[in-house]
Design a protein around this nucleic acid. Sequence first.
DNA 1: CCCGGTAAACTTTTT
DNA 2: GTTTACCGGG
Length: 723
Amino acid sequence: MADSLVDDLNPEQRAAVLHGNGPLMVLAGAGSGKTRVVTRRIAHLMRRGVAPGSILAMTFTNKAAGEMARRVVDLGGAYVRVATFHSACARFLRQDARRIGFPQDFTIYDTYDRDSLIKQLLEELGLDGYGIKASVVGQQISRMKNAALKPDTSTSGFSDVARVVRQVFDPYHERLRKLGAMDFDDLLLHFLDMLRSDPQVAEEYRARFPFVLVDEFQDTNRVQYDLLRQLTTPDSSVCVVGDPDQSIYGFRGAEIRNILDFESDFPTTTVVRLETNYRSTATILRAAEAVIANNKLRKDKRLRTENPEGAKLLKFRADGAAEEAGEIADRIRGMRGEDVPLDQIAVFYRAHWLSRGIEQALKDKAIPYTIVGGVTFFERREIKDLLAYLRVLVNPLDDVSMERVINVPPRGMGKTSVQKLRDAANGAGLSMVEAVMDPAMHVGLSAKSRKALGALAETLREAKHMSAAGAHAALKVVLQGTDYINHATTMGDPEDVAREENIQELVSDVVQFDEKMGEGLSGYLQHVSLLTSADKEVEGPSVQLMTVHAAKGLEFDHVYITGLEDGLFPSMRAMEDKDGLEEERRLMYVALTRARQSLFLSSARERMVAGAMERSTVSRFLKEIPADAMETHSATWHSWSADEGGGQEPEAAAGHEIDFDQTPQVIDVGTRVRHEMFGEGRVAHIAGRGQMARARVRFDDGIERTLILEYAGLRVVSEGNAW
DNA sequence: CCCGGTAAACTTTTT
DNA sequence: GTTTACCGGG
């Protein structure tokens, strides 16, 4: 019998899609059709008569969630809500927040809000003298919560940071409660607490969602796993999908252990392995497998493919970051000339700040691009300010938001005035928002401040009143009442224009939300506070720029992996311990396996890092790729496809050799070099290796100096053996 | 209180 | 190279 849902699937995929009741674990290698299986399984369940509302599907990112929901609809299924763990918990908590002592309209604090609060607490508790940054404390607290730990002495060390964290941990959470706010981690923890403390509630949720599905299971942390167990029974129809080789969120508490535990906690689990790769060329797959095979803490696992060999991977070693980016831009321009769709080209980097150079080069060559992630729209200062105004309307306990904007635009409320108001509020048992609204709390402030606060209170009152008509009405009052646009566009820097545009974009986003969702101001705020990079629509075809983390789950015909240098990728921090390095290698594996047809692997001999020029060696991961799967890129454009002359390798330009595999520099005895301060000279002697390598150089002024190669920044003028 | 200057520190990765 | 911390004059 023909069945369009499974006709074109292989036997393993089919088994996963058609699996009946009971737990199922799909171990899906890269490019093995995981999303396909998940979406078809959902469609299949609905065809069996399962109501869309009884399926709880959770993914890791908003982007993946949206994509999955869309693909189910494309298969002819009804709309199924696919959520991230965080958004699902937020939604559930919104209904039941009162049970755990939070207002229904609780505020969700992002990382920035969290750190502002911690900073204030450090000051209040007199712990700000240690030179410890609030963000470090915040990260540490987050890490503990993700591992489901409490700050007792057994879990922390004796460093200053550990002591401070211990002292701040409880006050931080008490304060959050007082503010009617939760941070990202709390969304999961509070919901988990709710289920645990009231078995009947847990039972309600299990009855409501007999089908639970978790994507990217290898990236779940302990709390998420505990949550999953609360939402299921050992013989539930729970389906988890993941790939241990793609676990890249260890820094966030992800535990591969969850995959092992799953089989024992759900003893009747059916395990399905998807081991055929349909995505990449055989050469790309071979390269990726060779790299990941270097991980020791790993079950040996192979992926098959019937795809053609395809072109070899191209490696390119540039002198500097600008050359690297320029070459990539040139190449992309060439591909564009061959009618390669731009949105099938992606450029990856290890960290956001590395996007700058690439952006610049693409801009110079007029190639459209989109940055995925980075400082997102809703993290921009002007947007956060305006959202803070809206938040205090919905949650009058939210002092963090109130203090954020109490003097923005400047209204004469400096540090001392704010402190006075804070004291008055504390004395009267009021929140800051309430104190702003109450003229009785303004006594003792300057006439100017009192007047400004009165106007602010009036604006907030009016906005609150108008919020009944929707988020847009409230925002309009805020913009008018505070003259915010004027403030944001006259700060005298080049960003003035962009800020105005951003505010306009916020306005239209709000208007759209009002029309489409009709969930009111508080609905808008909830929607927005869990949005990150994801939902920005791509307008027109463009090259996709993103971190490797952001690339997970995506695929492109042509992929550029940049900055393949030791210290960058793998990152300096990750190189310190073995686990870190193995996770970094998985990250490289993820990067490589995103590509369908071609891969371009680049590095630069030197680049600016935090203001200083740094030299580096080629990434160790690149050296793990079999030599016969790669060839060296020559600086002139030729077609990316193998059959169009990709084979020949033009001569490297003289005096400009491309020594990809050579480590740091080609400075030998006899080499003529230039130093920025000392001028030109000849290398007389080399001592030491790696970071310790030193060169004794006899400069033309007749003086011999010993220089550490790593820092000296010597440039080769001509090779010594050329003579 | 505000703004402009200068000094110092720092960059993984995300919900 | 960019963002934050601190200081001194309006």
